[in-house]
Amino acid sequence: MTVVALIAVTVAVALVRAGWSGRTGLAAAGWALAIAAIFALGWQYGAWGIAIGFVVAMAVAIVFVLHAAAVSPARPRRREAASSTALPQGDGYAIARRLGVFVIVVPLSFIASQGLALAIAAAMKGNGSLDANSVATAMFIQPTAWAAIMAWQMTMDNLRNMAAPPVLVALLGSIIGALA
């Protein structure tokens, strides 16, 4: 069963590759087969099966990518611009802004995500003592929330907007904590 599913994953990626050059039906079939195969692996073997399925899929895709690199036709190259050895000039405002971004993205967002994690652990355990589910959930939620906040902040263009996501998450954590 494992071997069949892994062969299906390999064929699926090959179909996606074949469909990339315009035959969208093939690509769609490939994605559908990949999802079905990984689902089957997960059904049979749980997380281990899903992990193995993804590893095979990525490895096959990388082989196709390396093949594309190997057969890529040569093209004329642009002349490289000469570089300067001058030291970069930084003005005080730019440095202060960068520090502000760092403070908002790192410690502020860390605290907000940790608060959310703590609140969710409290809601899960209720009046009982800490258990494996509440502890593990808190430990997974914190880095996940922090990564999501960070990615969200990186799509914003000023410090005030960047501060909004951690504030919102902290607010959410406070509400959950109060209700817990």
Binding site: F64, V65, A68, A69, A70, S72, R75, R78, E80
Partner: peptide, 12 residues
């Protein structure tokens, strides 16, 4: 661009 890799093009 899923499978495009112009390895012998302009370096950038």
């Amino acid at each position: 661009d899923a499978f495009r890799l112009r390895s012998r093009h302009d370096p950038q």
